[in-house]
Design a protein around this nucleic acid. Sequence first.
DNA 1: GTCTATAATCAGATAGAC
DNA 2: GTCTATCTGATTATAGAC
Lengths: 216, 216
Amino acid sequence: MRTSIAPRVSFKAQMLKVREDAIIQVVNRLLAEKGFDAMTVDEVAAGVGIAKASLYKHFPSKEDLAAAAMVKVMRQAQDMCASLPDDAPPLENLRAVTRWTMALKLAGDMPSLPSQNSTLRATLMANHDYMDGLIEVSDRLGAWIEAAQAQGSISKDLPAIAVLYTLYARACDPVLEFLKMGGQYSDEQIITLVMSTCFDGLNARTAPADTAAPTA
Amino acid sequence: MRTSIAPRVSFKAQMLKVREDAIIQVVNRLLAEKGFDAMTVDEVAAGVGIAKASLYKHFPSKEDLAAAAMVKVMRQAQDMCASLPDDAPPLENLRAVTRWTMALKLAGDMPSLPSQNSTLRATLMANHDYMDGLIEVSDRLGAWIEAAQAQGSISKDLPAIAVLYTLYARACDPVLEFLKMGGQYSDEQIITLVMSTCFDGLNARTAPADTAAPTA
DNA sequence: GTCTATAATCAGATAGAC
DNA sequence: GTCTATCTGATTATAGAC
């Protein structure tokens, strides 16, 4: 994406970026653990190991803190999509992205935002980095969805937008945490299970798939 | 459940119950709209039309307000389950409960709780009415799930607990609100769509089902 | 830029009269 | 039980020295 020629950045600027990356990492973890409303700026400052006032030199508000974390995750999603071979079967790419999303959540690296919070929504929708990323990812997934439907690997009865939302919703699926809390299944097994319910549904399959879930 | 003999309740007690029902209704609506954290006790008081201090004569804390709303919904769920014929195909009963849950959410009557909030969780888990209801509903659904798996209408590859969680998760599925926000589909169409993704999955079906989703 | 100290505000909960 | 008025604590954000 970015040119690798002449990274003319001062030492100070580099230090600043490192510091901000550390902040974002803490924010990301706290957002995943407790969500936006329960996360306090004091906790973030304590987690980074700097004073709260210093935080506000980097980010003008709590909302912007969360937005920065979301932008980082969105960038990762863009990179993930870009890394997939465009000549692969579209269904396989969709499955790979869905797996990646759920693995991120199970690892505690998926920030969870309340969809109702209006001030946060406003900040996020005003953030071009975030919105551009969201649109790019949606376009790419949308193209794969339509291609998969055209070749008959995703149901043609479903509007593409419903398929897209269903995949996005895996990023905040409570089934993942419920199964993890039970402690009965490994992260890999949980992902396999939810992949199965997502793509194959709960109904019995007439022909047993080779991607069958663990039976324990 | 309760005996209908000699409802010996004073007029005052009746008035109190009416008032508390009104409170719970407001709480329910606000929980569905904004969630627990964003809901303020002042809003509840304003919605009911009484002073905040009066609220605290009825419920000792904000958490108990939310718990009361949850108990009410849980009771409704118990009644819904009890109303289903026990000799019907178990899959049909499961589908009926899932439909009912999503209709409740689309109507704005499904309180949304942050699964991370610890004080709320504690209050809820200490509430016997709620926990008893949850256990009864889970037992009933669990029995239907196992029966459906035994007769081959729900996949035997999935642990029953995973199926149960997947059904519960429909109560807070963001796909419902996303599709509703789009304004392109009616509530009925949305429910049909999500029912399809839930039970049939995203994959193409070899044999087209008669419960196919709208194609627009 | 980082800090300590402090504003400013908001929300949950309570006191006390009636 | 309901009210007005208030307390208390937590939290976002800022002032101002260094």
